[in-house]
């Protein structure tokens, strides 16, 4: 896992800055994420964790610095940007599934980046690619019977997994997750984290923002973000109590 040798980095951020209303939301952030790496992003609320993830998935273009994907600079044309984004999957905190569509249609929506119009429209008329969708569900221990259900009929835990299954359908190389555990009870949270860590084996990578320092030991690396700046980038074994205290110091508790 820790083979940081010749392998090409999935994502590389160089001296990223994003301006904000009162103070910069990100400032001079650099990081490299390689295949197989599972990285946790810690920091108090408002530290810029969501912004960092949004820069990573291309939602927010940085005002300074550069983003590289698989060694290429971040796409300058919309077309190239989309081709890169097609391999970056985001598990949003509010999941952002399309409630009115069925589970199968939502899973297939993960393929929209590579599908042409005929398939995109056909997906709204007929069940497409049932085999691949069934496989994605089974991999996450979901009942394939759910395929025909509208997402709005699912329970909270089922939705989490469907959202994750959409990332599998997307064949994402990099998984981004924005505090996925925040609104879950401990049992569901553990289950989801297990799934995410399992799916993030090489050639994939995982960058996950987190509110719970107690889970840091399950990751390969831990990043500390505060006031838009990277305080540390360590393996969990190197992480010390003082560093955590500094990260959360001064009222802005976790």
């Amino acid at each position: 896992m820790a083979d940081h040798g010749l392998e090409r980095a999935l994502l590389e951020l160089r001296a990223i800055a994003v301006p904000g209303r009162r103070r910069p939301r990100l400032q001079g952030v650099s990081l490299v994420l390689r295949p197989g790496e599972r990285v946790a992003l810690l920091g108090p609320s408002g530290a810029g964790k969501s912004t960092l993830l949004a820069v990573a998935n291309g939602l927010i273009p940085p005002s300074q610095g550069s983003v590289h994907w698989l060694g290429e600079p971040r796409g300058l044309t919309p077309h190239r940007l989309r081709r890169q984004q097609a391999r970056i999957g985001t598990l949003w905190q509010d999941l952002r599934l399309v409630e009115e569509l069925t589970v199968q249609q939502n899973l297939n929506a993960g393929r929209l980046a590579v599908w042409g119009w005929p398939r995109a429209v056909l997906n709204l008329l007929l069940p497409l690619d049932t085999e691949a969708c069934t496989a994605a569900l089974q991999r996450l221990d979901l009942d394939p019977q759910l395929l025909g259900q509208p997402v709005s009929a699912l329970s909270g835990g089922q939705r989490q997994r469907v959202a994750l299954a959409r990332l599998l359908r997307q064949e994402a190389l990099l998984l981004l997750a924005d505090e996925p555990l925040a609104s879950l009870d401990p049992r569901l949270a553990d289950g989801l984290l297990d799934l995410l860590l399992a799916e993030a084996a090489a050639p994939r990578g995982l960058l996950l923002s987190l509110h719970r320092p107690d889970l840091a030991h399950r990751f390969d690396r831990v990043l500390g973000l505060r006031d838009g700046q990277l305080l540390f980038d360590l393996s969990p074994q190197q992480l010390e109590r003082q560093q955590l205290a500094a990260l959360y110091a001064g009222g802005a508790g976790p």
């Binding site: 998935n57 291309g58 939602l59 940007l81 989309r82 081709r83 890169q84 984004q85 097609a86 391999r87 970056i88 999957g89 985001t90 949003w92 509010d94 952002r96 599934l97 399309v98 409630e99 929506a109 993960g110 929209l112 980046a113 599908w115 119009w117 995109a120 997307q170 994402a172």
Partner: peptide, 15 residues
């Protein structure tokens, strides 16, 4: 949200 999520996954603006 849903539209943003799709577009961050590389889906074209129309789809």
């Amino acid at each position: 949200g849903a539209e943003q999520a799709l577009s961050c996954a590389g889906t074209g603006p129309r789809m």
